[in-house]
Design a protein around this nucleic acid. Structure first.
Length: 601
RNA sequence: GCGCCCGUAGCUCAGCUGGAUAGAGUGUCGCCCUCCGAAGGCGAAGGUCGCGCGUUCGAAUCGCGCCGGGCGUACCA
């Protein structure tokens, strides 16, 4: 990278004035410094704030900057060093830029690196109950988790993506009962669906989708026949379902809902390595085993007819119930067993488990960390990423999302605005901030979504190549002309180009704004890999979305200042190289966010 | 009450391991298509970075205290 090269030069410069700055060693000094892009273009290509050296040199920052600046003057590829307070600004020579372009061109995969090569990560996200359709909040975890998986893989990590299916417990009974009543209604419309009452929990799902589950189920003749037998057993007024019926309908609801969730997620570009069933965990006896281990390690005890987890011996506020007085496990118990499984399966191959949870579960973190510690596993290996919730804005009014009312689902949203717009939008903001999702805006004015700005830049690059490599029509004569550049010759040029061949990249660019645009573009392209690493290690995919918007802006600016397909092919080719790099970078960046990079729009 | 997240331009948000004149999108107002895609470019206007105190040569960034908003605080899942 250009940046690395510059850093190297800066090191030399610093070593030459190390004594004067009273540095113990050049590396000590260097460790204090960061090479950054200046906030404003006219400061140059790179900047270093030397203020942190003040503690060694015992000199005011501007004086240190002066000393460093003098030293930089003798570092050949660094040009025009200038001072501004505690900053030293400088530019790099064109040769360095050309070398940088060449290296990017020869890279097999842009931005790919090995920073996380040692990591084997189990990433769990979305993890919804199979009791209803995915809602818009799930859309955020979907986009966030999958983008993160792609980014971490690009940094060399092994990433296993997992969806935990909460197919056990009372919610499943509720959906079974709900399907039961909807089935009854299919046969006899006069049978009422249980009404909601204010003062007690409502164990039903009133959503329309439950009607669809019932209809799909009954559309099968065998199912219908079986159901009629159960219906005959059900008596007014409450039409209690037979056990067997609930069992079958529970499985039916789970099957249909999971199929729908899978279909939608696949449409969004997600393929989970495993859909882990909570029921399987119980049936395999893992929950009981896990509880046994907790007991043996002295972290579970009986009191008041329940079994408790002594989580307060770790960072938790109080102890938690594992086995209720009625003898059944709490949700926590199964979840502990699940997380235990993550760390012991396949000989404990996973170095880290990362979960994405909604902020409404944040209070759950201390007890889960405590559980991991109690099981003798380093709790640092469990990393929980919290995402703040999504507020829906309908008619300018904020409403809390929830799948039990009738409101826009993730599938509806994807139908309305498309996968690309949803995925980009969902990761264009930090997960630390509550996302307001304006449904009306999404439905009406989808081209306000910044994703189109980025995609447009990509399509424009492709368009330039279509013009450069395709047959041309002479409008005056009506004749077909040969391509501006022969496609085969272009490929040959691309694979054989060297710094000399790129040498005319800066030719005929006299306009200051044009030159700035080109240099800026190259430096921005050079920073792609750093950005990939930053996104993956900070777990902040939104930084990639912003980077792509910046890059697209730099390209549009370059495009309006510098004509690529100029008459002299030897000048046009190096410029096409830049367009090619841009095309690849945009495509790779979008791919890392799971967004398509269309060749035309 | 306690815990976590947030409060930055009209709106939606970046920036937060302290550092230059606080940025972008959108909206508003100008200008730019005989020339590679105007879903674009160039420019203008728009800010006591919620408030106060503290640490520091220096605070949007760190600490403390307020104020405002969201979420949580189950033998629910």
């Amino acid at each position: 990278m250009i940046k690395e090269q510059v850093w190297h030069q800066l090191r030399d410069a610093l070593s030459r004035c190390g004594d004067e700055l009273k540095l113990e060693s050049t590396d000590d000094g260097l460790a204090q410094l960061a090479l950054e892009r200046p906030r404003q273009l006219h400061f140059g290509d790179f900047a270093v704030n030397v203020s942190p050296l003040a503690r060694f040199a015992k000199l005011p920052p501007p004086k240190i900057a002066e000393i460093v600046c003098e030293s930089v003057k003798t570092s050949a590829p660094l040009l025009e060093p200038s001072l501004a307070g505690g900053f030293v600004n400088f530019k790099v020579d064109t040769q360095t830029l050309l070398d940088g372009v060449l290296r990017l061109l020869q890279a097999p995969a842009l931005g790919q690196n090995t920073v996380m090569a040692e990591d084997c990560i189990l990433l769990e996200y979305v993890s919804a109950n199979p009791t209803g359709p995915l809602h818009i909040g799930h859309g955020r975890w979907m986009a966030l988790g999958n983008s993160l998986a792609r980014l971490m893989k690009h940094c060399g990590a092994t990433v296993w993506q997992e969806f935990y299916v909460n197919d056990y417990g009372s919610q499943m009974n509720n959906i079974a009962n709900s399907v039961w009543y909807r089935c009854l209604q299919q046969c006899d419309a006069s049978i009422p669906f249980p009404e909601k009452t204010e003062d007690q929990p409502y164990p039903f799902y009133p959503g329309e989708y439950v009607v669809d589950i019932a209809a799909t189920y009954l559309a099968n003749d065998e199912n219908r026949a079986e159901f009629e037998q159960w219906r005959a057993m059900a008596q007014a007024p409450d039409y209690q379902a037979p056990e067997k019926a609930l069992e079958v309908l529970k499985a039916e609801a789970k099957f249909q809902m999971m199929a729908a969730q899978k279909r939608l997620l696949e449409r969004c570009g997600l393929v989970f390595d495993l859909w882990f069933s909570e029921t399987d965990l119980h049936q395999a006896g893992e929950v009981a085993d896990c509880l046994q281990v907790l007991k043996e390690r002295g972290y579970a005890y009986e009191q008041d007819g329940a079994v408790w987890f002594a989580s307060s011996r770790f960072d938790d506020d109080s102890d938690r119930v594992l086995v209720k007085t009625d003898g059944s496990y709490t949700y926590l118990t199964a979840d502990i067993a699940y997380h235990w499984d993550k760390f012991i399966r396949d000989d404990g191959c996973f170095t880290k488990a990362i979960n994405i949870w909604g902020a409404d579960h944040h209070g759950y973190i201390p007890r889960m960390k405590a559980a991991i510690a109690a099981l003798g596993i380093d709790p640092e290996r469990l990393e929980i990423l919290l995402g703040q919730l999504v507020n829906l804005k309908v008619d300018g009014q904020r409403t809390r999302m929830g799948k039990r009312k009738t409101m826009m689902t993730l599938a509806d949203l994807v139908d309305e605005v498309g996968v690309d717009a949803v995925r980009f939008w969902m990761v264009s903001k930090s997960q630390d901030t509550t996302l307001d999702f304006d449904v009306d805006l999404a439905a009406s004015a989808s081209d306000e979504n910044p994703v189109f700005y980025v995609q447009y830049a990509h399509a424009r690059c492709c368009s330039i190549f279509r013009n450069a490599l395709g047959a041309r029509l002479d409008t005056a004569e009506g004749e077909t002309l040969p391509p501006f550049i022969d496609p085969q010759a272009w490929q040959a040029y691309l694979s054989a180009v060297d710094a000399e061949g790129l040498g005319r990249l800066f030719d005929d660019i006299e306009d200051e704004a044009a030159l700035t645009a080109l240099r800026e573009l190259i430096l921005k392209l050079d920073g792609f890999q750093d950005k990939v690493v930053e996104c993956a290690t900070k777990r902040y995919p939104h930084l990639m979305a912003r980077y792509l918007m910046d890059l697209a802006a730099d390209f549009h600016s370059f495009y309006s200042h510098v004509r690529v397909l100029v008459d002299d092919p030897e000048v046009a080719k190096p410029r096409l190289v830049v367009v090619e790099l841009l095309r690849r970078t945009l495509a790779t960046g979008l791919q890392l966010l799971g967004v398509s990079a269309p060749q035309q729009m």
